[in-house]
Each structure stands twice: as C-alpha cells, then as structure tokens.
C-alpha cells in the first residue's frame, strides 16, 4: 500500500469553507413586533412591501409578525425577542428599548417624519346595538351600573390612551383639575369588571363574551369589530373629545446590525409613509399623516376634538412615571376585583 500524507492545514481550511458556505444561504426575513390590533393592517401591508422591495432590489423578503399588548411586546423585545422593527401605539414602548435595553438610540423618534409615527388613531366607544345604556360621552361611563371594558393600562397602550383620554376629558370640564380628574378616572375604573392585557383581548371580552355595556378602544378596532360582528349588533359612539394616539415605529439597531437587515428594515418603515402605505392605513381605519389621503375619507374619520398626551399629562415620560409606574395613580385607584 502506498504511503498517504495529508496536508493538515488545507483540510481544516476546507472544513472552515464548508461551514461558511452553508451558513451563507439564509433568506432575508424581518420580524415586526407590534401591538394587538394591527394584525389586519400588516396582513395587507407586508405583501405590498415585499412586492415593492422585490421590484426595487430583486430581493425576496419575508416578514414575520408578533402581536400582543404593547407593553408586553416591548418587554419581550427587551428580554431577547429579536425584533428587526417595532411598530407600537405609543412612544413609551419604544423609549424603553432605548433607556433600558440600549437597543436603539435615544433620538429614535427623529429618524422618520412626524415623530416616527406614520399614522395616528384615537379612542372611541363601541356599544351594543341601540345603545341600551345610553352612552354618548365620557360622563356617561361613570354612571352607576354602567359596565366599561378597557384593557389594562399597565400592559396595553390601548388601556393607557383610554385612561389618559378620560383624565384629559375631566381636566377640560368646567372647574376641572387634577383632583377631579383623579376622582373621575377612579369612578370610571370602578365600572371596569375585568382587565385584559391587550386591546384585542378587551374586544373579545366585550364582543365575543358579551360582557359590559361599552368598549373603549382604538378607532380602527371599533370599525373592524362592527364590520366583523355586524352593524345589527354593535355601533360606534364618537365622544365629544378624545386623545390623539400616535403610532410610532422604528428599527431595532442592535438586531438589524446582527441580522444584516438595516437597509430593508428602514425601507419597510419608510414605505409606511408612501402613498400606498398611507392608503392602506386609511383602509384599516388608521388616520394617515398625509393630509391629502386623510381628506379623501371624511366619513371614515369623524371630526372630534383631539388633545395630546403632552397636553394632558406633560408627555409620555411624565405620564408613565405619575400614572402607570408601580405604585402610581392607576395602582392607587384601581381596586382589584
């Protein structure tokens, strides 16, 4: 038998090359971690963007979705859920990724137009057909015997906006002040029999389980629920005033750097501002930022007085600290049932 000599370095090099070749075969994929009531919107938006990206670059991109209560979703990202982009319903759930997670820069809101919020919404009421409890405005929600469904403000952006909308309404009443606002919100949550962790869960409680006289939720969720269950069962009520809910978005730098998806993640969010993205937002009852697109749908987006979180609570940071932190105003007023 002939002697055999093996050039050991070359063999190890071959092994290394084999590992490299196999690991280079991955598809481009994005994970969009979003809040509870955007499922239907992104079902339409993701294929639209994928087609746009394919036409633009020739690359195929797959977008995976994760939905839940916005604060819980933010916590999941902090705990390691590898979100390439986050699309939330309030700045606090993105701010925390900068402050606690160092996953994004502190000035993330300046990276895209309109505070990085390509659409807005507001909190409306959903009542049973015929409005048997006679609910027309915020003051009707605190009447004895009225049962109100709101998700938990500590885990849901939907719940936070509802809480702040009630607080703002009370502040804006003649003689309104913080003390009266606190009493008003306490009376409101005394009428809340069950707290869901997210907006979609609250809709289930009200619409599927038949609990409560009124559901407080985002405008798009009101429209979607009426459409799904039928106008013969439910109807929307537009109060005299409500809160402006911005829906901010950003890419998660630490994750996109690691995945090599910086470019596509940014493009995915920028496309939300395009005409097609804005039209899709309007189609799903999110108020588009583009005034021309918004003006096309006056019947879809009724006029009402909208106040901001800044006006009601001095901004999200103050609202979070005063109202929703552990031991904050909400913890003080809400008696667990």
């Amino acid at each position: 038998m002939h002697d055999f000599r093996l050039p050991d370095r070359s063999v190890l090099l071959c092994l290394a090359l084999a590992v490299g070749a196999v690991t280079a075969l991955a598809d481009t994929a994005l994970l969009n971690v979003s809040y509870d009531v955007t499922r239907e919107f992104y079902k339409d938006y993701n294929p639209a963007f994928a087609a746009h990206w394919k036409a633009l670059t020739g690359e195929t991109v797959t977008i995976n979705q994760s939905h839940g209560g916005s604060a819980k979703q933010a916590r999941s990202v902090l705990d390691g859920l590898a979100a390439d982009v986050v699309t939330m319903n309030g700045a606090p759930d993105i701010d925390v990724l900068a402050s606690a997670g160092k996953l994004i820069p502190d000035d993330w809101a300046k990276r895209l137009p309109d505070n990085s919020a390509p659409s807005t919404s507001t909190i409306l009421f959903l009542v049973r057909k015929g409005n048997p409890a006679g609910i027309h405005d915020w003051s009707d929600l605190v009447k004895p015997g009225v049962s109100v469904i709101i998700p938990n403000p500590k885990t849901s952006g939907n719940g936070r906006y509802s809480y702040l909308a009630a607080w703002g309404y009370a502040l804006r009443q003649p003689g309104g002040n913080e003390e009266k606002a606190r009493a008003f919100v306490a009376a409101l949550f005394a009428n809340v029999p069950v707290l869901d962790t997210g907006g979609r869960g609250a809709t289930t409680t009200f619409a599927q389980r038949g609990i409560g006289d009124v559901l407080l939720t985002f405008e798009n969720e009101v429209a979607l629920t009426v459409k799904e269950l039928g106008a013969d069962k439910l109807e929307a009520v537009v109060p005299s005033a409500s809160i402006l809910a911005e829906n901010p978005v950003t890419w998660v730098d630490k994750v996109t750097h690691k995945h090599g998806t910086d470019k596509v993640a940014r493009a995915y969010l920028e496309y939300l501002y395009s005409d097609e993205g804005q039209e899709l937002a309007a189609k799903h009852f999110f108020r588009p930022r583009n005034p021309a697109v918004l003006a096309k749908y006056p019947d879809r987006f009724p006029a009402l007085t909208l106040f901001t979180v800044q006006e009601v609570a001095g901004g999200w940071a103050a609202a979070q600290k005063i109202h929703f932190s552990d031991g904050g105003v909400f913890d003080q007023i809400y008696l667990k049932k």
């Binding site: 999941s76 705990d79 029999p193 069950v194 962790t197 869960g201 409680t205 389980r209 038949g210 609990i211």
Partner: peptide, 24 residues
C-alpha cells in the same frame, strides 16, 4: 349573568396569562 360571564372571563385571562408565562 354578567357576574358569571366576568368570572369566566377572568379565569380565561388567568389561564392565558399562565400559558403565556409558561412559554417564556
């Protein structure tokens, strides 16, 4: 009936939370 439904829903939410917690 509302009280009964609320009790059921609370248990449902509790079960969901437990299942979610178990997942993580």
């Amino acid at each position: 009936e509302q009280k009964l439904l609320v009790l059921e829903r609370k248990q449902e939410i509790k079960d969901d939370d437990s299942a979610t917690a178990a997942k993580t």
